[in-house]
Design a protein around this nucleic acid. Structure first.
Lengths: 189, 189
DNA sequence: AGAAACATGTAATAGGTTACATGATTTC
DNA sequence: GAAATCATGTAACCTATTACATGTTTCT
């Protein structure tokens, strides 16, 4: 369960309110850990109850903005958690189930779905590559920026993998229109 | 939500009982969609209630083996579902949160975790490669077997990606003992 | 008869998703 | 003052996980 620690990380990077965090989760952090604003509000309340964060403006209920910052205990908890072990999460993707079902059914038409997925993976890849060009050229030297670059490159690698898979699936299913308009040479980032 | 359709697929491949399906989910299917026996029993009951599968031995409660087979309505439902659209599931991995937290904390020791993950990804890769060598050499020609091979190759690609990520993370965090005993040339399968 | 393995289930809890509700601030 | 937007929440539901409970068959 990583959401509380993702929130601690985000709040150390910069304090903020629930909705603002939800916005950040739609951008940078959300590229590898998604959360809705409902989850974020619930979790922020828990973090505050645990004494890991504190909100200014302790009064005020609904509708009033509450900014949170991380307390020393929260920073300590984050450090403890980072050094924990984590079992690698196995691959779990609906498309794999679909492909296997298509294999056993023998006569399906899922290329529509595949074309759509291909398009959205290409879009996401272009998005990541733009961020990389903007924020990480030339290649960063500091440890912190190298780590952040690595996280982004993981996203890039991920999209390239799925582009390859969709493309090959379309070939197998005999689709004519597999245009190679977007790059995908090997997988090195 | 793919579990019911994963079960239908598995039962079309071969009818069986709940525990036997749980065993198969620990092997082939579970490589890309995991499920516990508790989930499987609950879902089989739902599939039967929906009229998609039927169990022989309609009597018998606890402790008695119940074998399920797929009814025509279940096959139709599976086909309908396969041809549905599915939004690509974004990357979601705890390690990414950890790396970003390490970046912001600045002084953590997570190489232990990374080494362990590296080992288990290498183990899984070896496992997949063995299956590929056994079941898919020479490269299959039929549509069905090519699809099943593609699913396996996706697993292989997935493990190779994580091996690369862990290795680079260890380099950044200044770990001395990154042995390259397991192959990882590029990523083409 | 006892133990081990096989087999099916229940209960409690937590996390995530969707839909909805409500208050505050800004803009016209 | 009405509408739009910002902001914080509640409720219902579903899936997944964990721990536990119970019955059946097989083997010795």
């Amino acid at each position: 369960m990583s959401l509380p620690h993702a929130l601690l990380t985000a709040l150390i990077e910069r304090p903020g309110s629930g909705l603002e965090l939800a916005g950040r989760f739609d951008r940078s952090i959300g590229y590898f850990w998604q959360a809705s604003h409902q989850q974020i509000y619930r979790e922020l309340a828990r973090l505050e109850a645990a004494g890991w964060v504190r909100s200014m403006e302790p009064d005020s209920g609904r509708g009033r903005r509450r900014d949170y910052r991380v307390l020393p205990a929260g920073r300590a908890e984050l450090k403890r958690w980072v050094e924990d072990r984590s079992a690698p999460k196995p691959l779990r993707d609906e498309l794999m189930v679909r492909l296997r079902a298509a294999a056993v059914l023998g006569d399906t038409a899922l290329p529509d779905d595949l074309r759509q997925r291909l398009a959205s993976h290409r879009e996401m890849l272009a998005n990541y590559l733009a961020i990389e060009a903007r924020d990480f050229t030339p290649a960063p030297a500091s440890r912190e920026r190298r780590l952040r670059h690595l996280v982004l490159k993981t996203g890039i690698r991920h999209e390239r993998s799925w582009i390859d898979v969709c493309t090959e699936a379309l070939e197998i299913l005999g689709d004519p229109a597999v245009d190679a308009s977007t790059e995908r040479p090997s997988t090195g980032s």
